[in-house]
Simulated assay, not measured.
Amino acid sequence: MRIRTLTGSLATVLVMSFPLLSGGQAVAAPSGVPEQSLAARVLTYDASGSAEFRSAVDRGAAVWNESVDAVELRPAASGQRADIRVLADNGWPRALPAGLGGGTVYIGRQAVTQGYDTIRISAHELGHILGLPDRKPGPCSSLMSGSSAGTACTNRYPNAAERAEVERNFAGARSGTGGAERTGSAGQAGPVPRAVPVMD
C-alpha cells in the first residue's frame, strides 16, 4: 500500500515538473479525486452443508453484495477454509459470529416450516456475521427485524440504516481478502471474540 502511494506520488511530481523543465506551465491535478479506491474486504462462505437451502444462501449473499461496497461475500474455492460456514438443521435459524466477518450460520428448517422466506432468513443471518444485531420487534422494511415482521414479510434487503452500519463496520477493514486474522469494527486487528449465538 505504501509503495503504491509513494510510486503514485513520485509519478505526480515528475509529471508536474516536466512542463517546468521544458518551459511550460504546471497544472495541478483536480482536487477531490482519490489516489486509489479501496477494495472491498472479501469474505468467503461455505454453503456445502446448507442442503436444500444452497440457492437461498447464494441469493442471501448476493443481496449483501448488491447492497454494500465495503465487503463482498464469495463462495469459498474447493479446499479453501471459509470465513463463514452455512449449515442446515431442524432447529430455529441462528448465527454464531466469531469476530467481525466470520462464524457459522444455521438455516433452521423450523422457521421455513412455519412459512418464513428462506432468502430473507439467509440474508438476515449473514447480517449478524457482518456485525448487525436483531432489531425486534421491527417492520418488514428492516431485514434485521427477522421473524418479528411475520411470515408474510419477504423483504430480503437491508434498509438504509442497516447498510450504513455494515459499511461503517468494514470501512477500516477493507483489505481485499478474508483471512484468519479478524478485525474489530474500527478495523484494528485483535483477538477473535468468543462465539455468541444469535437466535432469531
Rank of each mutant, 00 (worst) to 15 (best):
D89W: 03
G138N: 11
P97A: 03
M16H: 09
V57C: 00
A186I: 07
A123T: 06
N169L: 08
E35M: 15
P133K: 07
A149F: 00
V192L: 07
A51E: 13
Y106Q: 01
E125L: 09
P133D: 15
A70V: 06
G99I: 04
A76F: 13
G172K: 08
S141K: 12
N90H: 07
V15R: 04
T151R: 14
Q25A: 09
A76V: 04
C140L: 13
D69N: 15
R156D: 09
D200G: 08
N65S: 10
A40E: 01
R85D: 05
V33I: 12
V192A: 02
V86Q: 01
S55T: 12
K136W: 09
D89T: 02
L126Y: 06
D46M: 07
P93K: 08
P30M: 11
V68S: 02
R2S: 14
D69G: 13
Y157L: 10
T151D: 06
T151G: 01
A70N: 15
S55Q: 15
R182W: 03
L143C: 09
V42A: 08
A40L: 00
P97S: 11
A171L: 14
A47R: 07
V105A: 00
L38E: 12
E52S: 15
S67W: 03
S55I: 04
V63A: 04
P193A: 11
S78G: 04
P193Q: 03
G108H: 00
A195S: 14
I84A: 09
A161H: 14
S50L: 00
T5V: 14
A88Y: 02
G102W: 07
V15S: 13
A40V: 01
T183E: 09
A61S: 12
P75F: 01
S55K: 11
A26L: 01
G102Y: 02
L14V: 15
V27Y: 07
A82W: 05
A161G: 06
S175V: 09
T183C: 07
V15C: 08
M144H: 01
E66H: 03
S55D: 14
A62P: 00
S185E: 07
E52R: 15
A61Y: 11
I107N: 01
A61V: 10
C153P: 00
P97M: 07
A26S: 11
S148Y: 04
F18L: 15
R74Q: 14
G146D: 03
R41K: 14
L43F: 11
P133M: 03
S122Y: 04
R41D: 01
P158S: 06
A186D: 15
A77C: 09
T7N: 06
V192C: 01
G108I: 04
G146F: 06
N155P: 02
G184Y: 07
A56D: 06
T7H: 10
I107Q: 02
D200Y: 01
G150T: 08
G131L: 08
L43H: 08
A70Y: 06
G103L: 08
R41L: 02
M199C: 07
G138P: 05
A123I: 08
V27N: 00
